[in-house]
Design a protein around this nucleic acid. Sequence first.
DNA 1: GGATTATTTCTCGACAGTCGAGAAAATCAG
DNA 2: CTGATTTTCTCGACTGTCGAGAAATAATCC
Lengths: 406, 406
Amino acid sequence: MLTKSSTELVRQQNSTLVLAALRRARNLSHTEISAATGLASATVSAITAELERAGVIAKAEQHVQGGRGRPRVLFTPRRDCGYVIVVRISSDVVQYSLTDYGGTLLDRFEEGRNHDQRGTAAFAQTFVDALERLLQRSRLTRDRVLAVSISSKGLVDADTGAARLLWSPVFGSEQLDFAALLAPDWRGEVMLNNETLLVAQALAAQAERAPEGGFRSLAAISLGHSIGLGVARKGRFGEMDVTAPNFGHMLHAPSAGLCRCGAYGCIEAAAGFYGILRAAFEVPPDTIPAKFVPIAEMDKIAASARQGHRMAGYAFRQAGLALGNGISRMLSLYERMPIYVTGPGTRYFDLLRGGLEEGVSQSLQLRLQGAPEISVVLDEQRLVFDGHLERALGVIDGDIAAAGQA
Amino acid sequence: MLTKSSTELVRQQNSTLVLAALRRARNLSHTEISAATGLASATVSAITAELERAGVIAKAEQHVQGGRGRPRVLFTPRRDCGYVIVVRISSDVVQYSLTDYGGTLLDRFEEGRNHDQRGTAAFAQTFVDALERLLQRSRLTRDRVLAVSISSKGLVDADTGAARLLWSPVFGSEQLDFAALLAPDWRGEVMLNNETLLVAQALAAQAERAPEGGFRSLAAISLGHSIGLGVARKGRFGEMDVTAPNFGHMLHAPSAGLCRCGAYGCIEAAAGFYGILRAAFEVPPDTIPAKFVPIAEMDKIAASARQGHRMAGYAFRQAGLALGNGISRMLSLYERMPIYVTGPGTRYFDLLRGGLEEGVSQSLQLRLQGAPEISVVLDEQRLVFDGHLERALGVIDGDIAAAGQA
DNA sequence: GGATTATTTCTCGACAGTCGAGAAAATCAG
DNA sequence: CTGATTTTCTCGACTGTCGAGAAATAATCC
């Protein structure tokens, strides 16, 4: 059931439009905003006046201009309008970052996670403490933080407003509800997203900004100890729809062996680092997976595979096959889209490629539409961070536009 | 990029809201419309007046009322406001139906399809002729037809506005563009949808009307000569998002053998009628699939399976396994949702169930959230027809609301 | 049977928003 | 200094929603 509309919602939508345009371009003049949004000049006046009154945007001091007529006055988001905390939880380290409303990094520190899993309760405490520390270092108060954006590998509650970690390689199925954790003291938005979802978000934002345009959809796959997938698609109303399906634990083939999650035959059980290790050393496939595989260990297997060692090569090939089959299945259910591969596993992409291409090539869809473009993108952590900001600042802009009414 | 909003769009949206409410309930009074849509009474007055002026709705003559005060006057969609043609293309027969704007069936006939495939060109001609015949029988002109809604099994161009059949069991990869076919003479909407998509649409509409409410998503699976899947999900803005992923030709396992589509290992190659037949008779799995399997033949295999014949039972079990694995993978990529099984293959559901449940039970997602409810729904053809109307009339209502502005 | 009451529909004025046109502002060229 | 040029700002017209209250109308009460 659609919901009723009103003139107030119109203003809200057009306000977010102006904020989005301003965010993309850093600063724009009155006429540029009008051109970018398609709104009439008078409407832009009304909206910018309101946003300026609310302290969200400001006119730039210097109207540097070489033009002929009246100098343009540039609007720009006010950095001090609020702040965003970004938390990246990975298996060995947790990174805390603070940025302003403009998205520039103000402070960052990391905290190691000791591997003797003390459970979620202890982590929750260090987490809250770290947030406080981040504020103190920059002399900020909690109410200046408009959003806390958290990422982890694993499965996240997809409901909007929820921030529950349902399953993760770090905490297993011990659930962790960040929204509840920060609920009483923090008034900002609390959001939790899968790491690879954020990669897809960042790549999609890049693609949409690109001049050639025409973006429809893409998928990001992260290779490492576990396997992540993010899918970004443009929805019916032009909005970006990003999801993180449970790709790593999608069924590949029962022969793939026991997975960390307890099931048999997951993609991860063949294509995750521990799966590759197991196959290379011919460990029985129902062996309980290694808790952690050092990258040096993987490098050694890769080196011997490149020197022609049979089982090592086979292990990577099987991993590629699992990924390829998974991608083929994923594309059957969605549509043809370019695939971007990230994560520490990309350094073995030369070894995976053969199996991957073979695995992908088995479907009607691909025969009709051709194989998808598969490319490697580096600097996954950077992309995750960009995805965090893209998402968090977008949500904040929405909140601001909505608050203008109240 | 979102698009700008305006007061006219507000009216458009609210008009569709009123039309949708009116369609669901057949007839509603002024106050009932107000309650159903959440719009203020004055707004309802304005919108109903406009729609009445446009000849889309009318006040019911008789204000039967036992109430106390001023009698309620009921609004109702005007049946003669326009007409819809529904075409169901199945492998052996094409059914043409005519309904009015209220969705009541006015006329229907079927035309057999001779199996000596004369190609799409010949079919296109008989198709256009049949539409003309449908009009003549009811003495209507083409411009009174607001939509032609066509369904077939197979893969359909998902772009809005397009009506191209990309691949189908009937015509193979010979494409057929219905929009182009009817473009010059017919001014109504031409839409083409996968058959099982329409089943999902109809079931979702039912579920949403149900009093308990809280509908999120569902999947419909059609079992028969080929395998169809439709997924209906409620989108971010409350709209119903229905898709028909290429489930039948998703990769199951290479061992499943040669599929009709030319690839190896599709779900259909194991779970379609010809796949079951092939397994039951131990025909080599790379045999070119039978063009058509009579249902009597399938019944015989089922009977012997029920009597304990080993290979027949195995064939159904393998089919169930292929379906179950496919569902498990599908749910990994989307979310947990109830599954509705339709189609002629449901009569063998007792034989499929074991393999199906085993096949479904292999994933992390299901361990976390429990197995999906799987139920059988009969009368697939009726559901397809309902889905046609649900969709076509919805689109027409949208067009009417949009036209009110112009 | 007439007054009352309950209920629904309709109408009016207030308010919010967008838009186009043109006035006002501000700079540069000559 | 004057005019050209470009940008910003403002005003009135238009569209739309909303709340309140008037108008309509049938059942009920006495």
